[in-house]
Simulated scan of single mutants.
Amino acid sequence: MIRMLLVEDEDKLVASLIKGLRTADIDVEAVRTGREGLERAVEGDHDIMVLDIGLPDQEGFTLLRRLRATGSDLPVIILTARSSAEDTVRGLERGADDYMAKPFVFDELVARIRLRARKPPEEAPVPEGVLVVGSCELDPIARVLTCDGAPIPLSPREFQLAHLLMTRGGEVVPRAEALEHVWGSAARDNVLDVYIRYLRSHLGPHAIETIRGVGYRFVG
């Protein structure tokens, strides 16, 4: 059974989610405030958190930032009425794994919880070898990217996107595939453009080639 932490202050929604998710074999612990959410996320034994942004004591973004600062890799799905592109990017940049806008389809939420919930160690993918494209080398085990021998500091999402592009060995990665692989179906299309700009700011303007109407290619 998946063990979920729900951080939400809307009583009717909490009651509805607890009832529905338990029928889907998802055990729910619910708290109302960001302070309680952070405490239970750090101390508890949960597989995933579903987090509202508009909490009574603090923004959910603040809770998420503080959670990631502890080193926690607990998967987090943001569930909120705030669905602008800016809020989506903000949530994903602070370490969210998925982003759903209210109102939402219950079956879709269940599917995303099952997809994002922390997997047992034996299901973790086998690490790949060092990837080399152009003058860049990426070590997925050490999580280090170097170009021309110099280490490149990347955020977790930037690293994940660079890793995807480099696994293709210079082939084009379609936009839709990159969005789904790195952010899941919650991401807006322009999130990818934002992170491509971030990577180019680190690697140089010509390190990633845009194939208009198709996607991107890492050339190093």
Rank of each mutant, 00 (worst) to 15 (best):
A81C: 03
E93F: 06
I113K: 09
L92Q: 10
A101M: 10
A101Q: 07
K119W: 07
P75H: 07
I78P: 01
R116V: 14
K119H: 09
S83Y: 00
L109V: 09
L79G: 11
K102Q: 13
S83I: 07
L74P: 12
V89L: 15
R114N: 05
R82Y: 14
P103T: 07
R90E: 09
S83G: 08
K119R: 15
A81W: 09
I113V: 15
P103K: 10
R112D: 01
R82C: 01
A101S: 15
I77A: 01
F104A: 06
I113Y: 03
A81K: 01
V76E: 01
L115H: 07
S83T: 14
R118E: 06
R82F: 14
M100H: 09
R112L: 03
A85Y: 05
A101Y: 05
R116T: 05
G95A: 02
R82T: 01
L115W: 07
I77V: 12
D97A: 03
D97S: 08
R90G: 11
P120Y: 06
A117P: 11
P120K: 07
K102C: 12
A81F: 09
D87R: 00
I78Y: 06
K119D: 03
V110N: 01
I77T: 02
E93A: 15
I113P: 08
P103Q: 08
I113E: 06
L109I: 07
P75A: 06
F106A: 09
P120M: 10
K119T: 11
F106Y: 15
P103E: 10
E93N: 14
A96C: 01
L74F: 08
